[in-house]
Structures are given as C-alpha cells and as structure tokens.
Design a protein around this nucleic acid. Structure first.
Length: 403
DNA sequence: TCTGGGGTCCTAGGACCC
DNA sequence: TCTGGGGTCCTAGGACCC
C-alpha cells in the first residue's frame, strides 16, 4: 500500500510565537506585520537573527545573519528577544492538537513534525481536505499559521512543506517529482548544504534533476557513499519510517559562548563546572549513564576542536563529569584564546555496570548517586540554584579543581 | 559583517589483533 | 627482518539540520 505522509511546519515559528505572546500581554501591534526579527543577545556575543517576519525576509534578511548585517539590509528593523519557555508551550500545544487525530506523529524539532496518514485515511478521508482542515484548526485555536506538505515519504513531504509560504498546503506525490522537484536548485534538496552544493555546481550539477540523472560512477568517485544517497534523495526516494515513540537521545551536550575570550585554563574550570552540572542534570533525568565524555573548545579564530575519553565505568554524576572534563581540558590545552567551551556525553547506556576500583571505598558511588538524586529533586521543586554541595558553591571554592 | 546552541550521521586514520 | 591484508575499535573532525 502506498504511504501517505504529512509534514507540518510552523511558519516563522519563533517570530509568530513571540507575536502571540506580545499580543496577549497588551503589545499594541502584531510583529508579524512589521519589519521584525527575533535576535540573540548582542552584548553576550550572540547577535544573530533567529527568526524573521515575511517583510524582513523580503529585505533579504536570512536566519543566522548578524544583527548588524540585518540592520544594513533593513534600516527600520525591529529586533525582539527570544522566549524559549513560551516557545516550548506553543510547541506542546501544537503536538497535542495533532495527537487528537493519531499517535503516529514524529516530532522532528520544536516547530515541525511528520504525521503518518496511511492508516487513518479511512477515518478522515482525503488527505488534502484533512490538511486544509487542520491548518485552519491550528490557525483558529492556536493563532499561528503552518505549511503542510503531503507526499508518499518523509523526504518529499518535507520538501513540499517548504514550497511557497506561508499558510499553504502542497503535495509532492511520487508522480509529481519530475515536475515539481527536478527544476529546483540543487541546494534546495534536504541534506545538501553549502559545501556539497558548491562541489556539485563545480560538476555542472545545478538542479535537483541534474543530480537525479548524474553519473553514478562519477558521483561515487567524488562523494563515496554520500554520492549514492544524494542521487537517491534527488529522485525522491526515502524508505525511512515515521518514528512516533519517544526517541531517546544518543548524546547529550551543552556548550557556551563566553562573553569574552579566556586566555587562562584555570578561568575555564568554573564554566566546565556549570556545564557538568547542566549535562549531569539532563542525563540523570533520562536515567542514563555515559561511557564517553568529550570537551569541545572553539578558539578566537572560530576553529573548533575536541577531545574525548572513554570511561571504564559509565557515569551520570556531576562531580565525576566535572573531574574528567577538567582532566581532558588539561590534556588538550593549547594555550590560546578560547571563545566557546562545551561538554558532550556520548555512548549512553541505561544500566550502570560498575567495575569496583580496588581503592574505592565500598558504597561510595551509591552514596554519591543518592545524594545527587536528592539534590536534583529539590532543585526541580524549588528552582535550580537552591541547593549545592558546599565545595561547588560559586562564592566559595567554585573555581578550585576537585581532586 | 564579527559570526548561537542543540543535535545526528559519516569518514579518515591510527592502534591493535590475527 | 620485513612483509600483507582484513577486521574492529577508537578518536577527531566535518557536514548538515533546525
């Protein structure tokens, strides 16, 4: 049986959602109708465009433009801050609304999802009629517009929702691929970024159709296995399923851009600590343990590099994460200005098999685990800064390495 | 121009083993 | 002493996405 997949994508999500928030709080106008963007905090060196209104888009403003550049493109640009808590609320409301119709929904990001319509078609009828109906329902009950793409697989549904915006329903069925997808620029293909598209164009592969008909041997020679995948995608082939159970993360990472470059390793330890705290909290919430811990740095020339360590015993403890992260930092330290620092936990497992060290006092780890669990619970209840181990207190010994 | 943060997946190359 | 090749595991880094 032919599959029917819908891709639902919120138009200008962050900007639309902020617009609704502002209107609810008595703001005099709708920022969707103005030359407006949602921007990062410039004083914290995060001055980029996170989302833009359609008017701002018409000035040539693109997501991730610097605010400086955005202002050059549009003189009377209005810049509003982001509000992630609110975005999560709106996102949840959208997915709950869709869940009324089926549980076969794959949440792809905060503002988009796939819906497998194949089985529920007998219930709700023609998919195009259904798409228009839920598009209107979302607009009327939640107050924002979406684009919906309809196709026979996820790739084409996603391509379809990206056609003309906003507030539109598009189809890209198997028999429409040549007509609707082949003429598009090759960089419009999902999975083709800047690097790949410029390589393709140097080979005179300019449209998706060119790529679909490209010589397989040549493609393999230049792109190896990626070459085969690219041709498949260009032909609109995708067998992946709509995964609608809760997807477990494969890695958990946090990183932070420093307000100013840091030249001194010791000054980075406090940041490593709060990152350890953050990823520690997240991995414990997942009830998981990590076998691999990595530290990432970005220098003042924007070069990123990372080092990792495989652990004998997987961990989820803030204290242990911090200690290991410090030792990795020591090992990789190159004595150059650092702009960004991050910690990543990888190779996650649900069971904690511990090889007891000969010198480790018995039950030590259990005690640490129980203590951190209690602290997590209190922090969830009363706010994240409520309780901390004395040695971790910011005003106390925070900057010192744990030995 | 002065450039975020969260991820996933893939690949190259080295170490090690047989 | 000098030689090969395959397999697996690991690390580092890159491309891409939202």
């Amino acid at each position: 049986m032919e599959r029917i997949i819908l891709h639902i994508d919120v138009n200008n999500a962050f900007l639309s959602w902020s617009a609704i928030y502002l209107l609810k709080n008595g703001f005099p106008y709708d920022i969707r109708d103005r030359y407006a963007v949602i921007g990062g905090d410039k004083s914290k060196r995060k001055g980029i465009v996170l989302a833009k209104s359609n008017k701002a888009k018409k000035c040539g403003i693109k997501t991730a433009d610097t605010l400086y550049l955005a202002r050059q493109k549009c003189k009377n640009l209005e810049i509003y801050p982001s509000n992630y808590e609110w975005y999560l609320k709106m996102s949840k409301q959208l997915f709950e609304l869709l869940s009324k119709y089926t549980n076969e929904i794959e949440i792809f990001s905060v503002d988009e999802c796939f819906l497998d319509y194949t089985k529920i078609k007998k219930l709700y009828g023609n998919e195009i009629t259904f798409a228009y109906k839920i598009k209107e329902e979302i607009k009327n009950t939640l107050g924002f517009t979406v684009n919906i793409g309809i196709a026979n697989n996820k790739l084409c549904a996603k391509m379809a929702s990206d056609f003309l915006k906003p507030d539109k329903v598009h189809t890209l069925y198997q028999n429409e691929i040549e007509k609707k997808m082949y003429p598009l620029d090759v960089s419009d293909l999902f999975g083709v970024g800047k690097k790949t598209s410029s390589k393709l164009k140097s080979l005179k592969i300019n449209t998706i159709g060119d790529l679909a008909h490209a010589n397989e041997q040549t493609m393999y020679r230049i792109f190896k296995n990626q070459g085969k995948d690219l041709i498949k995608k260009a032909r609109g082939i995708d067998d992946s399923l709509v995964v609608y159970w809760d997807v477990e993360p494969k890695e958990i990472g946090n990183e932070i851009t420093l307000q100013e470059d840091i030249y001194n390793k010791e000054e980075l330890y406090p940041y490593l600590f709060s990152l350890a705290e953050h990823v520690g909290l997240r991995i414990r919430k997942q009830k998981k343990y990590a076998y691999v811990l990595a530290v990432t740095l970005k220098n003042n020339h924007f070069k990123r590099y990372s080092h990792q360590k495989k652990l004998l015993n997987p961990t989820s403890s803030t204290e242990e994460i911090y200690k290991i992260a410090c030792s990795i930092l020591d090992e990789m330290w190159q004595d150059e200005p650092v702009r960004l620092i991050g910690i990543r936990l990888d190779k996650l497992t649900t069971s904690q098999i511990r090889q007891m060290s000969l010198f480790e006092p018995e039950n030590h780890q259990q005690k640490v685990d129980v203590l951190e669990q209690i602290m997590d619970e209190i922090n969830y209840k009363y706010g994240s800064q409520t309780i901390k181990k004395a040695s971790f207190d910011k005003n106390n010994l925070f900057h010192k390495r744990l030995k």
